[in-house]
Amino acid sequence: MLSLLNHYSNGRAAWFLLFLSTFIFELTALFFQHGLGLAPCTLCIYQRCAIFGIMIASIIGLIKPNNYIFRLGGILVWLFSAYKGFTLATFHAHLQFEPNFSDTCAINVQFPSWLPLNQWLPSMFNAYGSCADKIWTFLTIEMSQWMIIIFACYLFVGLTILISQFFPAKKI
């Protein structure tokens, strides 16, 4: 099975599916923000950036998937972004379900001066909601909990793909 996953990671179809999934999540986030009027908080914006990181990883993999360096680079960016997103989502859920006065989230997003996304695209990267608010539930699961599930899935699949790189690709 790992040889088969290695084979699939050498093609563009798998990387395109990764890109498509992140693109759909970004569109969903924008629909929640602009269509439903749900105010994103700082952690929501940072999680959105983590999804963008996975999207960038998929583009790296799409450029030249049969090249080991591009593929490994894409996988590493994918894993780093998924891990960061998972930790952000976990902290977000912690703020919502186990409130503690010592744990807070910033009111404004803070991007590096060389990448001020909130100034370049304020409609996409400006936070004006509270991290502690529970504003959306689906199947009795809050949005922060859904994001934990989503990032955990990205992390699990990314780790599996990384491990599969050590097994020779199957010829189909």
Rank of each mutant, 00 (worst) to 15 (best):
N100Q: 10
V109Y: 03
Y128S: 11
A93F: 02
C105D: 09
C131M: 07
Q110T: 08
I150M: 07
F97V: 03
F97L: 14
I150P: 00
F97S: 05
I149F: 14
Q145W: 00
W120I: 15
L139I: 08
Q119R: 12
C105N: 09
M124I: 14
L115G: 00
L155R: 00
M147F: 14
Q119Y: 11
Q145K: 01
L155S: 06
F97M: 08
V109N: 08
G129V: 08
A93C: 07
L95A: 04
H92L: 07
I141F: 04
A93Q: 03
S113T: 11
L155W: 13
V109R: 02
F101Y: 11
F101G: 13
Y128L: 03
M124A: 13
A132N: 10
F125H: 03
F111P: 09
H92K: 01
C153Y: 03
N108M: 04
P112W: 07
A132H: 13
I149S: 01
T140S: 12
P99K: 06
F101E: 15
D103F: 15
G129S: 05
Q119I: 04
C153M: 13
W146R: 01
N108V: 05
E142P: 00
F101A: 15
M147H: 10
M147W: 06
I107A: 12
N108P: 00
P99E: 02
F125L: 02
W136M: 12
L121Q: 10
